[in-house]
């Protein structure tokens, strides 16, 4: 069944979009990520203009992360204070990102920049996670007790000033890295159409040493607001949010997310991380191939005067 998207101005198949939403929703529920890093490239592969894929991706992420955050709130695995500080940084980063987005679009380099960012970030994060989780898996298999970080162990981040106590996370750290992390993720959110969970989750675990069970809920919490803000700014400055497209993705997404969350509970932490790492790397490789392979069309048309 075809449907005409009012903002993207093309006809698409409803079922393809619903299935896309459901599949990504399942994975996002399972791994506690918003799924934006999968939705946006998938939409681009499906010929949705990248500018619209990014803005609409951000809109879709709100639904899945809202749904996920509700589950975590009920279980008490959500640190509102930490989420709030991350969010403050996120708003600043997101505003900057939307302006860079509009500039790149005018220069005709938006698509390239989006792809490069995806490849670099997904490749790095996926690679690091894979190495770490495989090591952890090996350690458990060989019978050795998993090397858990001790709260006494500190890295350079813990020597920064302006410390703040986050009770739910059992954490006492400087707000500088928290704000910085939030800002960086806000920037990526607006340029890549992602919530940033795939960076947030490992950063909270490895850099700030937040307990894994609190990480996902807190990450989802801040993603709701960062992507809501990104959606608003894209809607007002670029008019690239397609509600029809977003709604179809969400409808499939929220259904998939609940099943994914259930499936995720059956897996161990390091198994989950290894799978997520493989998924992230796969997307990165797919996008990297597109950068190097001779495109079928060397020429592209865009309306002039679009910002």
């Amino acid at each position: 069944m075809g449907i005409y998207l009012p903002i993207a101005e093309i006809s698409v198949n409803v079922f393809v979009l619903l299935a896309m939403g459901a599949a990504v929703g399942f994975l996002s529920g399972m791994f506690g990520v918003g799924g934006g890093f999968l939705i946006t490239p998938l939409l681009i592969f499906y010929n949705i203009p990248p500018a619209i894929a990014v803005a609409t991706g951000a809109n879709q992420v709100i639904a899945s992360s809202f749904s996920g955050a509700l589950s975590h709130m009920k279980r008490g695995t959500l640190d509102f204070k930490l989420g709030g500080v991350l969010l403050a940084g996120g708003i600043v980063g997101s505003t900057g990102g939307v302006f860079v987005f509009a500039l790149l679009r005018r220069l005709g380099q938006l698509d390239l920049f989006i792809s490069l960012l995806y490849v670099a970030l997904l490749g790095t994060v996926g690679g690091l996670m894979l190495v770490e989780s495989v090591n952890a898996l090996r350690a458990t298999r060989s019978g050795a007790a998993p090397v858990l970080k001790k709260s006494g162990q500190h890295n350079w981040i813990h020597r920064l000033p302006l410390k703040m106590r986050f009770r739910a996370s059992k954490l006492f750290v400087s707000v500088i890295p928290v704000l910085g992390l939030g800002a960086g993720i806000g920037f990526l959110s607006s340029i890549m159409g992602v919530g940033g969970g795939f960076i947030m989750v490992p950063a909270l675990i490895y850099l700030l040493k937040v307990p894994t069970n609190v990480v996902i809920g807190t990450s989802l919490f801040q993603i709701i607001f960062t992507s809501a803000y990104t959606t608003l700014v894209h809607a007002t400055t670029n008019q690239t949010v397609d509600v029809m497209l977003a709604f179809l993705l969400m409808a499939g997404g929220v259904a998939g997310a609940q099943y994914g969350a259930k499936a995720g509970q059956k897996l161990r932490g390091e198994q989950l991380r290894a799978l997520l790492a493989i998924l992230v790397l796969a997307v990165a490789i797919r996008l990297a191939i597109d950068l190097f392979v001779t495109p079928p069309n060397l020429y592209s048309l865009t309306a002039a005067g679009l910002n």
Partner: peptide, 12 residues
Amino acid sequence: AVSLAMLTGWLG
């Protein structure tokens, strides 16, 4: 768009 997303997430 934001409200619709939140509503869908909650209903879902």
